[in-house]
Every structure is written in C-alpha cells, then in structure tokens.
C-alpha cells in the first residue's frame, strides 16, 4: 500500500520545482511588461498557480497533506480576489474606457 509510486522515484522533485520557478518567473515577467490590467492580473494568477504546483509537489513528495490543504486555501482565496479584482477593473473601464494601466495617471507625484 505504502509503496512509493513510480513517478516519485523516476522524477526528482527538483524538476517540479524548476518548472514552478519557470512559471513563476513568466508570471513576474507578465506583471512587469504588460500594460493591460487584466493581463497583469492573469499573470498574477499564473504566479499563484506556480506556487500551487510547488505546494502540491512538496506535499506529495513529503507525504504531508498540509501543503495540499494550503493549495485549497489559495485557490479559494484567489477566486475571491479575482471577483473583487475584476469588479475593480470593470469600474476602471467604465471610467476611462480602457484597462491600460499606463493610462492611469491621475496620481503622480
């Protein structure tokens, strides 16, 4: 019963971590380079998913359910965040007819 499945033996945990890091960096890049608020927000979701992957990976490899529970929390909270976020984006869109963050220049020092 408690035999370690094949995948845990043939694929080192590092591979998953690397994949997560790559996805995370892509997310960061998206946040940094894109101007469309929605796409920035999507990049954030991508980053969250990279984190989720990390948690699941560690959780599975370490055989500890906490990580997966955490992922559950992250997912739930991400959903709430998206709801609020999209409401805000829609609000902005009503105001400036765009979601381009570089058009947001009311506030400058």
């Amino acid at each position: 019963m408690n035999q370690i499945p094949e995948i845990f033996r043939v694929i080192p945990v590092n591979n998953f971590v690397i994949l997560a890091v790559v996805l995370f960096s892509i997310g960061i890049l998206g946040v940094l380079t894109r101007r469309n608020a929605i796409i920035i927000f999507m990049s954030v979701e991508l980053m969250l998913n990279a984190v989720n992957l990390l948690f699941v990976t560690f959780s599975s490899y370490k055989s500890d359910p906490t990580g997966q529970v955490f992922v559950f929390f992250i997912m739930a909270i991400a959903a709430a965040e998206v709801a609020v976020g999209l409401a805000i984006i829609v609000m902005i869109y009503r105001r400036i007819r765009s979601t381009d963050v570089s058009l947001l220049n009311n506030l400058k020092g």
Partner: peptide, 23 residues
C-alpha cells in the same frame, strides 16, 4: 478607482511573492 486598481495589482503580486516564499 486608480488607487484600487494599483493596490489590487501590487497587492496580488506581493501575495504571490509571499506565497512563493512560503512554498
């Protein structure tokens, strides 16, 4: 509106960093 959006984007981004650290 702008404040909300900026806060949202940056806050969410920061959250991701925190989470990455936690992971």
């Amino acid at each position: 509106n702008e404040a909300a959006l900026k806060y949202l984007l940056m806050g969410a981004f920061a959250t991701c960093l925190v989470l990455f650290g936690m992971a």
